[in-house]
């Protein structure tokens, strides 16, 4: 057994006992939510009790996220590192897009951390806390045009289908606005990665800007998407974001413990191994 494992086991035991102390304070905080925009609404919140089993690492994954299997493996690794029993909750919702506030109720009732959230400075409301990143994921420019090797090869005036509002879209729009009007591309904002790729398939755009895991997942099920290829983002730098877990802001003790576990799992190569496994399955680069 490595020194690392011993340290984590000790930390885990310490965590289990401290959670029992920390629990009532968290419950108290839930009884006094701040009002106005700071705290979302969970129907029947006053009937939701605090967790009763502090030996569990309760995590959520969402199958609508194409990276959810990898997120789940990371969560299991974190649980093992903290010597906690992993308790997996698969979010059953089937809505295509949901507001982030839906997670408030899930975090009160089902799990302590929802895996798979991009670490965007200023991108979250005050009630949210985030773990450190356990993987890095990129946005991709993809095309069906054989003559395009990079974004810079796209002639001015030719449209780009971007999943609207993403960090990569914001960066692209910012760069585009910096160009002389005659040098710009029209950028069409689509609601989802799939819609942006459908825009590319329909010929509405020559290039699509989408999230890597979505692209890899859709390539397996959609023949048109399978024929698309990735091009370099030049002259833009790659847009790569850390991905971590989303928690309630007040759950600071557990968040610190998870952060330590992620650091340790990064150091010993565990997270890289998980990423390599899923990259091999997807046929892309490791997340």
């Amino acid at each position: 057994m490595s020194v690392f494992r011993v340290v984590l086991r000790a930390a885990g035991l310490c965590l289990a006992s401290l959670l029992a102390v920390a629990g009532p304070r968290e419950a108290h905080a839930q009884l006094e939510p701040e009002f106005y925009n700071d705290q979302p609404y969970a129907y029947g919140e006053w009937t939701m009790g605090r967790r009763v089993d502090d030996s569990q690492f309760r995590y959520c994954v969402d199958p609508r996220d194409p990276g959810f299997e990898q997120d789940g493996d990371v969560a299991e690794a974190i649980a093992r590192a903290l010597l906690l029993q992993p308790q997996r909750y698969v979010i059953p919702n089937t809505f295509e897009v949901e507001d982030l506030t839906r997670l408030y109720s899930i975090l009160l009732q089902q799990c302590d951390v929802v895996m798979g959230f991009k670490l965007i400075p200023g991108g979250y409301p005050p009630w949210v806390g985030l773990t450190r990143a356990y993987t890095q994921v990129s946005y991709l420019f993809v095309t069906a045009k054989p003559d395009l090797r990079s974004l810079g090869d796209l002639p001015p005036g030719r449209p780009i289908a971007a999943t609207g509002g993403t960090s990569a879209h914001v960066r692209l729009a910012s760069y585009n606005l910096s160009l002389a009007p005659a040098k710009r591309w029209p950028i069409f904002p689509y609601g989802t990665d799939q819609m942006a790729l459908e825009g590319l398939a329909s010929g509405a755009a020559d290039v699509a800007l989408v999230w890597d895991p979505s692209f890899r997942a859709l390539q397996k099920t959609n023949a048109a998407v399978a024929s698309f290829r990735v091009i370099a983002p030049d002259p833009l730098p790659p847009t790569t974001l850390g991905v971590g877990g989303l928690m309630l802001r007040q759950n600071t003790f557990l968040r610190n413990a998870i952060d330590q576990a992620i650091a340790a799992l990064t150091s010993d190569g565990s997270l890289a191994a998980i990423a390599a496994k899923f990259a091999a399955q997807a046929g892309g680069k490791p997340r």
Partner: peptide, 12 residues
């Protein structure tokens, strides 16, 4: 302005 891509499904 701020991006709204914290999760693939959860935006806002």
């Amino acid at each position: 302005l701020n991006p709204l891509d914290p999760g693939q499904v959860y935006t806002g």
